[in-house]
Design a protein around this nucleic acid. Sequence first.
DNA 1: TTGTAAGCGTTATCAT
DNA 2: ATGATAACGCTTACAA
Lengths: 339, 339
Amino acid sequence: MPLTLEEVGKLAGVSRSTVSRVVNGHPSVRDEVRERVWQVIRETGYQPHAAARSLASRRSQVIGVIIPEAVSTLFVDPFFALLLRGITGACNTHGYQLMLSLFDEPADQGETYRRILRSGRMDGVLVASTHMNDPIFPKLLQDSIPFVLVGRHPDPRVNYVDVDNVGGARMAVEHLIRLGHRRIATITGTLNMASGEDRLAGYCQALEAHRIPVQAALIGEGDFTKSSGTMGMQRLLSASPTAVFAASDVMAMGALKALREASLRVPEDVALVGFDDIPVAAALEPALTTVRQPIDRLGSMAADLLLNLLENAPDARAPAARIILSARLIVRDSCGALH
Amino acid sequence: MPLTLEEVGKLAGVSRSTVSRVVNGHPSVRDEVRERVWQVIRETGYQPHAAARSLASRRSQVIGVIIPEAVSTLFVDPFFALLLRGITGACNTHGYQLMLSLFDEPADQGETYRRILRSGRMDGVLVASTHMNDPIFPKLLQDSIPFVLVGRHPDPRVNYVDVDNVGGARMAVEHLIRLGHRRIATITGTLNMASGEDRLAGYCQALEAHRIPVQAALIGEGDFTKSSGTMGMQRLLSASPTAVFAASDVMAMGALKALREASLRVPEDVALVGFDDIPVAAALEPALTTVRQPIDRLGSMAADLLLNLLENAPDARAPAARIILSARLIVRDSCGALH
DNA sequence: TTGTAAGCGTTATCAT
DNA sequence: ATGATAACGCTTACAA
């Protein structure tokens, strides 16, 4: 049976309130008393009861992480794990706990939303990998639940941390241009997801910067799955591109399959670049040139941002924070640069 | 400002207790009253305050998941993500929430342990991927915190769910024997981890069942990392095995590297089998024959077991549950069976 | 079946 | 600097 503040107080010869002050580092306690109380706490292994604390203080020291169920499966790469690692790192240093919720698409159905987010269980939440028009955003804003999104969002009230998808994609495509390619195709990600849109935008920007016309025939729409990469590539073949930028490594693997089936060699006949740098990328034949994002930084920055929001004056007048982390190009064999 | 039971009661013309009974599905409430109360709850969107509930009922409806920090990184495969998915699935159907903690090695240092586990925040915990002699187990047992381990443990009081590592390994090695191999080497996993030990045991069992002597020269100790696979393979080369069973796919990849560097072909010169069936496995050249474990089942079964422990009479006299899920062999190219 | 009232273990506001 | 004491929102005997 765990001890209570009252009992610790009795053992230390002080009142419940004094013990509370000591535990919470309140300054107005005589040094001698403070030491005596700590002594008892150490000896007894006293640990405050989280629920009681939370009830009285109206803060739980817990943040939630919300990820759409479907996406968690899709991520055959360690994105999910790395993100969580980044988040837990930040939580640990701030003394917060992390509650994980995989929401069903379309991210709530109201019922789940209420149960999870209105129960006072968490002080704030991190939302990752949702569609931008996910119904969860209006609700979070309306309930004024502090939250930070991992991924871009147009609403000016939304705090977010994102990877520079535009810049990363542009970097990849400019690399191909530098290698002499002009007929460069792309297989896009899901187009109502920010990352899908932005990587396509980066592709277009790179071409435009080099006065290469953007052609619809060279753009195949995918949805981040391997099979969509294969199908996208098959459709693009008729436009006979000399290079392809796939908006994810998984789709690049799909594209590779289609190219093989069409007896085209990579990179000799078609150069290929992906995005994400999943672990498989380096092990592929040929090793995949790709764009790497700092995933765990993404997690830790998002958590830091949220925790700051929670700890400091939540000035509602302040503009939302928008943090963009840059990506970098990892050159391997599939682009032909190393030949 | 969220409503309280009291206020809902006022709106429905009943007392706080009646509303509580309705919310908790207590039978002794007149149907008419129950309906009236639900009506108000629906209209107002009332949601019980988790902390208050937990304080009064001494149950939080939250379970914790504890994974050593180091391991979470090591898992470049989706083990972690799939396990969590299985766990959250079970949690959702039981109406529980999930709290995630990545513990620093050696899994607690006491301080963290207390903060996380003695604060009453969680009703029970799932522990995954620890060493069997992790100091967390004696503590959990002493504090009589309900817990289920993902992975085998010798202590008779420990409830666990595990994959049949022995059977899986044995299956893999017997497959090699069936293909005619007699000089079969193995690269082991970390040997104070249950999975490491058991896969080695399975290797030995298979050989013994076929009266093939187990030779120390054919056993290389690894630690589940790729580099240990490479080094292990290099050392084994002098014993010139015709086949190798690596206790993990990641180590198999390392071994593949060593074999290549020694100009040995797989499977022509040396057959290779791994364990885990990580996504890379199928994409390797040659595609890796390996043993697949039902990871998300592992997670959901462990969570189910824990939740049953929590919901039902926690009969301390009942023997601990030990659940073993079977693995299956996935035959691809690296073992030479398809030639 | 329903209401009253006593906790649950903190925090926070007052006095002192 | 310290101690009473009233919340915090809910569950749960116990009464009615």
